[in-house]
Design a binder for these strands. Structure first.
Lengths: 338, 338
DNA sequence: TCATTTGCTTTAATCGTTTAAAGTGATATA
DNA sequence: TATATCACTTTAAACGATTAAAGCAAATGA
């Protein structure tokens, strides 16, 4: 793979490297390069199929025009969606996105950040994993430009773009209540992640504000490591009891999938036997017999805001953005009126 | 973001940059650096949180230790699977993967390749889009190390890792025949892509070898741009006719999803009314009421082979690998015995 | 005593760009 | 005639690393 550099063009045309650089960077008039030379240079560049060496350019310019993105798990619908959104906005701004998936693992998360920083990305967009506060603090201390997305730590003041998870869960619960549901279960992960805890809080407050007395077994928390097994128990605790719930609200799309699989196995018809509400959707819902009513996050908007916030940081504006966006309810057929 | 370089460490310790470089590259003994200095240097690097500037390193070494990957569409299950597999193998070999999705668009495909080459990736792994022969020829002429994956052009001699698509389709069709099916439809994209045409050929040959007379309407080809609409017609031509088919074989997972959605809408029960066989699977199958019998591609193996072939090329071995791997049939419940 | 070896360290060129600064003829002005 | 201006072009120093090659004391050998 023989590479063509400025030097080759310069030799070909018989001018200096500097002149070639000026012309190919659109500074021909500014530097008053003669039309003759400019044309010759452009022609030679074309003919030799010149590709500027971005590595050398980056080294000189201290800018790679690259954003590092770390998502939690590439298998989440949220991840592919936000990756697309960020990629699109970045492209508009002439930035490239380097990308990794932490798989919710703290060590992988740190390794990825390290790898991205070594590659001199101009900044980071991160979906932080559980217990990664130390890492975030480190980044802040070393003044790396970064923006959190989807998740944030209330105890750390950072730029972030997230959902108003409290409101989203509150409104979802209220929606179910307004349909006439009185016994609403909520299935969440057992976690310390703030954004998921906010969903608990929204759910509980909606019950309270509507004078529904919360029963302890309604709130089920499963460990993500073996959610498929634990969700079985969780749903049993909610359905196979004296006063079974008439609706289940799943706190994430992954939980919904596990839950629906179980309900399928048990031949529990939706929404006849039970209403189902999902936080986020999944491609998998497409083939389910019943369209799932769910809360939708504004992924494009989140991606756009994250990129733009980051680019402001990169350009040394001292922005301080905490965005808590609103979700919308997409009505399917999985929640019936009682 | 103040950056720490070799120079900073050198100044701190009071030695030259070269010594620091030697020590931090594990050449301390080789270059006979005094233990005292070596320790001081390592300590300082640690304390200052030194991150080697890979950009500078790459410029000097003419190696970025980075592979460029272009997949056809990040929404395909194949794409995420192969991306993971390639990422894992690359990591083992201490390479990073830069990654883009062409969305089956020729221009995007070319742009991505260009962007990746500008970033001086050491080589490319590509899922070529339709009609990209010229681009592939260009790459070959400019001696860029690359490996095609999933798809190849029989008229161009390149390194590639693909499925034996003929065999896979042949065996799938044979499987349906052995279950007693005599009227088997095949739904494919209307395309010039070799790997998909091979599936046609495998299907047709299997029919012939089993003395089943092929009926023209059995082979349905839809345009990918509006497959959801066209597949409706396609299935009508196959099911709502005098002698309807008793099995449908979809040539890709995306076609299967579209098909199943239609069959759902029409309340056509699987496998009672019709057997369904899919090429590849999708996460979406998880929530379908009936596990879909499908041909599975050995993604891990493909990823491994692609990376290893590419790295041999990068290291100037003149390998010439054409891999056509075998698929396996994953038996679900969507094909019944007649 | 002088030369050589040993042990350790520094110097300086290089990778492919960018870009301020200096250079160079030709023409215009004083 | 001397000098300023103009219209270009080249020179050379970065950027942050790698790495031959050279440098330099102290120790050893003749």
């Amino acid at each position: 793979m023989k590479k063509v550099g400025l030097k080759d063009i310069a030799e070909h045309v018989g001018v200096s490297i500097a002149l070639v650089s000026y012309v190919l960077n659109g500074q021909a008039e500014l530097k008053q390069v003669s039309k003759e030379n400019a044309d010759k240079i452009r022609a030679a560049a074309e003919r030799l199929n010149y590709r500027p060496n971005q590595i050398a350019k980056s080294l000189k310019m201290h800018k790679t025009h690259t954003i590092g993105l770390v998502v939690a798990d590439i298998n989440y619908r949220f991840s592919t969606g936000i990756t697309r959104a960020i990629g699109a906005e970045a492209k508009k701004k002439n930035y490239t996105v380097l990308f990794g998936s932490s798989n919710e693992n703290k060590e992988t998360f740190e390794e990825l950040i390290s790898a991205l920083l070594n590659r001199q990305v101009d900044g980071l967009i991160l979906v932080p994993v559980e217990d990664s506060q130390d890492q975030i603090n480190m980044l802040q201390k070393s003044e790396v430009p970064f923006v959190l997305i989807d998740r944030n730590f209330p105890e750390i003041q950072t730029n972030y773009v997230a959902l108003d998870n409290y409101n989203a869960a509150y409104n979802a619960t209220k929606y179910l209540i307004e349909l006439g549901h009185q016994r609403i279960a909520f299935v969440n992960y057992k976690t310390t992640l703030f954004h998921l805890l906010e969903r608990n809080r929204g759910y509980l407050d909606a019950l309270k504000d509507n004078q529904i007395e919360f029963s302890r077994n309604w709130l089920q928390e499963v460990h993500s490591e073996n959610r498929n097994e634990e969700i079985t128990n969780a749903l049993d605790c909610v359905l196979n009891v004296d006063e079974p719930c008439d609706a289940v609200f799943f706190a994430t799309d992954t939980l919904t999938i596990s839950g629906l699989k179980y309900l399928n196995r048990q031949n529990i018809q939706i929404p006849v036997k039970i209403s189902v509400f999902s936080f986020d959707e999944s491609e998998a819902f497409d083939l389910f017999y019943c369209p799932i009513t769910h809360a939708r996050q504004p992924l494009e908007e989140m991606g756009r805001m994250a990129v733009n916030t980051l680019l402001e940081l990169v350009n040394h504006s001292l922005v301080n953005n905490q965005f808590n966006l609103e979700s919308t309810i997409v009505v399917g057929k999985s929640c019936r009126e009682l």
